[in-house]
Design a binder for these strands. Structure first.
Lengths: 339, 339
DNA sequence: ATGAAAGCGCTAACAA
DNA sequence: TTGTTAGCGCTTTCAT
């Protein structure tokens, strides 16, 4: 029995059917299937209902329930790039797990950064009576909020919007930068270079601030000549190799894992060994890369799963709306073998 | 005005409100907002309705509509690993785009391969009256279908199940292997090594079959000593380097991009240059890797986006249920610079 | 302890 | 051309 083309997918069994079989009213059925608190139901009736339910294979219609209760169990997630990056998947995953935990289900929509698609997506979610919307981007930056988002509860994930007043959940770039630098410091390095991205962003400024802060705490002077700008990719890291070597630093904190990957190449070409000749620290914890470079790259993780989860918690009002605006999620250091 | 904690997210405006304002009946409103085919509505009434709609900011309740029509616009996507791999995101993306195109929205659930979570997810989707379910895995293999899936239309994505009779959509591994090999052949190589995975799978057998088939078509003998087993990761490729070099092959088809990445390292350590000393072809087209290796890796793409899209098309009955069981989706070769 | 009945917001005959 | 009305499957007072 192939299952294509049926159309009628649901059991078709309604509460009324159950009531009939159990010989009770639908009200009674409703009470027992939902295990209502103040429900005074006779043991016998209750049993009969349960029997009827299993016998008939009854499955409540969640949509009807929503309609009558007026309150839905949907949470919308609109993302600008579900696929462009491995990261987006993590946000969905975290959001889905957390939503699930609270009896909600995730409605996802991808917009490819297209404003029209975005509005349409939001509309659609609104029409589906979502409890609220998680609006997420694939990299941490400031956005301008689509007007439509104001029509429902929404929380920004991995992005923020200045005057919007919308709650936001973002990675703690500064702490991440600090942790990365501290890891290098802890290994005894004193002359630590930093390959930073050339693109202005919270990541650029935050990680730099963290780097400086860690240096400071260690009693080291910040040496501007030790930070090198580079495009945030393999190419950038590769190209920066020369300057890094010249700088006579013994360790490098790379703006991200891709940069580190490029640096690995550059170092290898010069016959330099990691971590003996040069310790390197990444950022992002992009699994395909970090875990599989040789040697495996120590890095700092971007907490995408947590961002998604914290996002729904925030939406559901389960998280204390920490006074300060964008809520910071920690970027945990990941110890591997490049230090 | 912060948007947290409202609860009532939807406009609250119903069709009745619109009817009242427009001075017509709800039936009329229903007809004009849905632009019903056989709806003979006076221009005037129609105009008044539209005005009322915009004036009130009316937004139809999709759930109520579903309930009354008896047919929902949801498609469920249950995945065993949304996040474990960059690929899952692509499947979601493809499915979402295609669903959207036909007026459907995607309900996603992650199960982490946990059977209990899986059943729960399926139940939940059933309760939400999904039109059908896409059951997907993050790598192509045979599965045993959860019993619950039989209660609705379902199509298997990137996996298949022998006797289940369920429609499946999977990548065409053999064609992919053939294309990869042909690319190498086209560049003039005659002695082409193949690093295959050690894990039995459609990928293992399919890509090998494709490799042989391409060789054959080119009038070359299949030389068993030219296929090297390796773990399907960087490590495997790296380790295989020695044998590859010994084999005196001039080109290598790697089971996947990660293996190719390892091979790159091995080759570089030996001072061998790509593609001059050795041409290499990958498989998967894992962006972070393939596009950013040096030189960028030529490879064959796993059509995840297409798998998702084809999955919903199949579910909706829009795709000819090609006679043969698992429907094959092409793996297009991607030309870069390692050949 | 249980049932009758009035909705939830919308669609779809059927009347008018 | 437009309005009435009866549901869709469920929840929830309010009676009994």
């Amino acid at each position: 029995m192939t299952s294509t083309g049926h159309g009628r997918s649901t059991s078709g069994i309604t509460m009324r059917d159950v009531a009939k079989v159990a010989g009770v009213s639908v009200a009674t059925v409703s009470h027992v299937v939902n295990d209502k608190p103040g429900a005074r139901i006779g043991d016998d009736a209750r049993r009969r209902v349960h029997e009827a339910v299993t016998e008939l294979g009854y499955r409540p219609n969640a949509l009807a329930k929503t309609l009558s209760q007026g309150t839905s169990r949907f949470i919308g997630l609109v993302a600008d790039a579900i696929a462009t990056t491995p990261f987006a998947g993590q946000i969905i995953h975290g959001a889905q797990d957390e939503a699930w935990k609270h009896g909600y289900v995730l409605l996802v929509a991808n917009t490819d950064g297209n404003t029209a698609a975005e509005d349409e997506a939001i509309m659609m979610m609104l029409e589906h009576q979502v409890r609220g919307i998680l609006y997420s981007t694939w990299y941490h930056h400031e956005i301008t909020v689509p007007e439509a988002l104001h029509q429902t509860d929404t929380v920004l994930v991995d992005c923020f919007a200045g005057g919007s007043g919308l709650p936001a959940v973002v990675p703690d770039e500064e702490q991440g930068g600090r942790s990365a630098t501290e890891a290098l410091l802890a290994a005894g390095h004193r002359r630590i270079a930093f390959i930073n991205t050339t693109t202005p962003s919270p990541a650029q400024s935050g990680r730099l601030a963290g780097y400086r802060s860690a240096l400071e705490s260690a009693g080291l002077d910040f040496d501007e000549s030790l930070v090198f700008p580079a495009s945030p990719e393999q190419e950038g890291g590769y190209t920066a190799t020369a300057s890094i070597v010249d700088s006579r630093a013994t360790a490098v904190f790379c703006h991200n894992d891709r940069v580190a990957m490029g640096l690995y190449d550059g170092l290898r070409e010069r016959g330099l060994r990691i971590p003996d000749d040069m310790a390197v620290m990444g950022f992002d914890n992009q699994d395909v890369i970090a875990a599989h470079l040789r040697p495996p790259l120590s890095t700092v993780a971007l907490p995408h799963y947590e961002l998604g989860a914290a996002g729904v918690r925030r939406l559901l009002g389960l998280e204390t709306p920490s006074t300060t605006h964008p809520q910071l999620i920690a970027c945990p250091p990941i110890q591997r073998h490049s230090i």
